[in-house]
Write a protein that binds this DNA or RNA. Structure first.
Lengths: 154, 154
DNA sequence: TATTGTTATACTCTATAACTATA
DNA sequence: TATAGTTATAGAGTATAACAATA
């Protein structure tokens, strides 16, 4: 017995809810990111990419500063850094000015890898924005930032 | 010694990336959802809300059908349903026509609760869209759907 | 005392693989 | 044989609490 013709479900009010549409879009974009990197022979999550960019642009920053920028707890950051360090992308160096903190910096190999990753991200971005004009993409970013501003002030 | 004036970090190219802005917005919206529900004396995640709506609008659907609609594995769904069932919102009933499946349905108490939750979601939606005109909100949803269409076709 | 990084622990979401009941 | 639901297990992401080193 074959399965019934898979009638699509009634989603009620959900498709009109901004939060719902945002969540589904984000999920598809995440999948596209993963697929793009897999096709490019690289393994990296969006969060790891953001972290590498932050360290690249702010060499020597501390784990606390990075955790704050990422909006996560400092304890959450530890295993993430462990992994990226094990892959040779970055190092924790003792700060000379404050013995409590670690100065984070990319290794030369990490910098090179970030270049490759950035090229893949551009490809991914091009793809997910392929249904939008340049003006629409810019408008979308502006609208999203407005939503974020309203949401976060709670 | 006070902490240095928390100079905000250089985020490089990130704020121009659609994927990044999407992720941050989604995170803020999620936080707003949680805060709205907590303020309303209710505890529910966006995913649980979506699930309850789906069961409400498609009474008797199976766990497989629900998992497919949610885009998750059937094994992932089990503990989620366990929790909602333990809270008295829904029941798994044996299907009379196919002994392998469970027919999912809201309890009367679940239906009542969903009404309260829906009111809270409307409040939340109103808040996150408060910086946008009605036309902008509609436009945003359309743009997001276009992005999703481009992304998921990978 | 307060801060930084770490560890221990726990909870949720996610998946795969194997089991059972049923078709 | 194939499908539905469950269980066992594992990995990633998140958090809190407590600890050592340093300020």
């Amino acid at each position: 017995m074959g399965r019934p013709p898979a009638k699509s479900l009634d989603r009620g009010v959900l498709p009109m809810l901004l939060g719902y549409v945002l969540c589904r879009t984000q999920s598809a974009v995440f999948a596209d990111f993963a697929a793009t990197f897999e096709a490019g022979g690289a393994a990296l999550t969006p969060g790891e990419f953001g972290l590498l960019v932050l360290v690249d642009r702010n060499t020597g920053l501390s784990q606390m500063a990075l955790a704050r920028a990422l909006g996560i707890d400092r304890s959450t950051l530890v295993p993430i850094l462990d992994r990226l360090q094990a892959r040779g992308f970055l190092v924790r160096r003792r700060s000379p000015t404050d013995g409590r903190t670690h100065a984070l910096m990319l290794t030369p190999s990490g910098t090179k890898a970030l270049g490759r990753f950035t090229a893949l991200v551009r490809k991914h971005e091009k793809r997910i924005a392929s249904g939008l004009s340049t003006a629409e993409t810019r408008a979308l970013i502006v609208l999203l930032e407005k939503v974020r501003a309203s949401a976060r002030s709670l």
